[in-house]
Design a protein around this nucleic acid. Structure first.
Lengths: 112, 112
DNA sequence: TATCTTTATAGACGTCTATCTATTTGTCCA
DNA sequence: TGGACAAATAGATAGACGTCTATAAAGATA
């Protein structure tokens, strides 16, 4: 195992914080989860139907998610296909596990 | 590898979101990083000296961190010793890696 | 008991954010 | 060209949050 770096700089802290912030809203987590488990593109309306919030709200969340490259968008005629950025899944293993349901029962039991 | 669960429930989404939310503030991330890399207890004043924000603000952040069990506190006379909850480090591998500096250079290069 | 030190709490303030309704933009098709 | 549909944007609102100053609580010590 490697050893600690000196310190977490303010700049680094701010960058990582923005990543965590994007995942800090339940609705946004559910949207990410939807896209991640589908392993395929979804339209905005499909996400709306599955998320329980309005269409502008979904658009807003998808914009935030794409700004940090958690999702990518591909226009297709009058619709836009959103899908998980698969490369990101490798860079965010724990978040990916939780969101994709690959973390059996995130044993909070041992974490108290 | 295991297969996807059906869906991320609202309840699960809300719980995970609270975890990420605690890590979504740069100051709080730096505090966690401090405690994690020290591998030992720190007083509030030591954290204040290293964090750049005021003492009440540090107390506030430490309270939030302990509410989700990321840190634990042990009163010692007139002071209180805060330390990382080591058990939590196992439950949050990626966050732990980032915060402890064990993630060499979280290669954002491949994540765009 | 009086005082000093350490930490927590109360309250205020400015900023950010999640959501909604209403509207606009953009694309397809008859 | 005109209508229909999909998605984005604008604007508003209510609530949450990070930080500060000021104060209180709690323990040690003389």
């Amino acid at each position: 195992m490697e050893e600690n770096a000196d310190q977490l700089s303010r700049a680094e802290a701010e960058e990582y914080a923005t990543w965590f912030k994007v995942l800090s809203d339940p609705t946004r987590l559910q949207i990410v989860s939807l896209l991640a488990r589908r392993h395929g593109p979804m339209t905005v309306n499909e996400v709306v139907a599955a998320s329980g919030v309005g269409q502008p709200t979904v658009s807003h969340h998808l914009r935030l998610l794409s700004e940090v490259r958690f999702v990518v968008v591909e226009p297709q005629g009058t619709t836009r296909l959103y899908r998980i950025n698969e490369r990101w899944l490798n860079c965010f293993p724990m978040a990916a596990d939780i969101v994709m349901g690959n973390r059996p029962a995130p044993d909070t039991s041992g974490c108290s």
